[in-house]
Design a protein around this nucleic acid. Structure first.
Lengths: 214, 214
DNA sequence: GTCTATAGCTGGATAGAC
DNA sequence: GTCTATCCAGCTATAGAC
């Protein structure tokens, strides 16, 4: 029988691997040319196929970006969800920050696609976006272990860590000028939020949650 | 009499104002479409002229970007160089940070052009870049007044403040979710860098230099 | 200096043969 | 599914009349 389940699975596998090959070529291209510098022609050439073949697997260029975004978001969620050795909350927090910095700086193009809005007209689909949301919720949980539950302090934490990433990738790509400040940053942050080394109830109530994510 | 100095000056003034009109139109466009979303056609239409006329004043698209960059850099330098009232170093530092945040968030497109590298193939000319360097040197001077001269602490400061900007423009454009954290950030930063100066400093002696503390 | 007209190129996306 | 060939839109930039 032509349409036996085996043949169907086999075809499905082929199709997925062909899609993966295209996405792989896309990642090498964005690493070289930047996220906004990819064209379908270059992409096809790099993947060893022709332009129309690309459209046999993706219905548009944004669909390719969406697949890349989903893949990056999943990698991010998996990276951040892995347990951290040790039981000192401070070390767990520092480890989390180090892991985030390593993830972002090890692949600036991925970081750009995932966290900076640099593609006009591209919005990730809900399905591709979901893993990123999951990872951020996880981060907030770990911060809560350090007694950081106030919305203002959470925002201060995200600003501090993303600032390190931003400066690192912008002004010292491939180096460690800012990633090397992560421990000092955690020390500074916790000293500010836990003055008596005890989770302190903040005198000001959590402010309204206004923004979208973070 | 055709080439009298007066006529020459007049023509020069006309030429400059025509250039300014084009740049003005360019700024309104980038505010609407993003820095990477401007075309010469749209720009000309917005300025009430045609495409070739643009090339009568700028030799290329990048020359327009360069003029915009230079203008933004000058505005940045002027903004940051204005004296800050008061003589409490902490207040001066906080005022400086507030000023920087206000500058960046009040015009995200300008911020994008000036501090983020989002235009592939565009590098500002040395002449356009110079004012930005001047402003950064000025910032380092003011930090030195607070005893912040260590390179690591300077980097920590820039990461912290740019992190606030980045989160603000990315996740709460037009709001104050992160800009409202500037005072808390300065407190946290100075408590970390000046542990022995936890008590409020009543007077400072700006002329005293090179007090390396860390 | 300003226009009309267009060159020359690159981009995303498609038609149709095989 | 993959190809050749092509369409069509948009872009930067220029030629040449006025």
């Amino acid at each position: 029988m032509v349409n036996s389940p085996e043949a169907s699975d086999w075809r499905e596998g082929r199709r997925r691997s062909a899609r993966d090959a295209i996405i792989r070529a896309a990642w090498t291209l964005v690493a070289e040319e930047g996220v906004a510098g990819v064209s379908i022609r270059d992409l096809a050439r790099r993947a060893g196929i022709t332009t129309p073949t690309v459209y046999a697997y993706f219905e548009s260029k944004n669909a390719i970006y969406d697949a890349m975004f989903g893949q990056a978001a999943t990698e991010f969620a998996d990276t951040m969800a892995k347990p951290i050795d040790g039981d000192d909350p401070r070390e767990i927090l520092a480890g989390l920050a180090r892991r985030f910095l390593e993830f972002c700086t090890s692949d600036p193009a991925r970081y750009q696609l995932l966290f900076q809005r640099v593609l006009p007209g591209f919005e990730p689909s809900p399905g591709s976006y979901a893993p990123a949301v999951r990872a951020l919720a996880n981060t907030h949980e770990l911060l809560a272990l350090n007694g950081i539950t106030d919305a203002r302090q959470l925002d201060l934490w995200t600003a501090l860590i993303t600032g390190l990433v931003d400066q690192q990738v912008s002004n010292d790509p491939g180096g460690d000028r800012w990633t090397g400040l992560v421990d000092e940053s955690v020390t500074m942050f916790l000293a500010h939020c836990q003055p008596q080394r005890v989770a302190r109830v903040s005198s000001n109530r959590p402010t309204r949650a206004k923004g979208r994510r973070s």
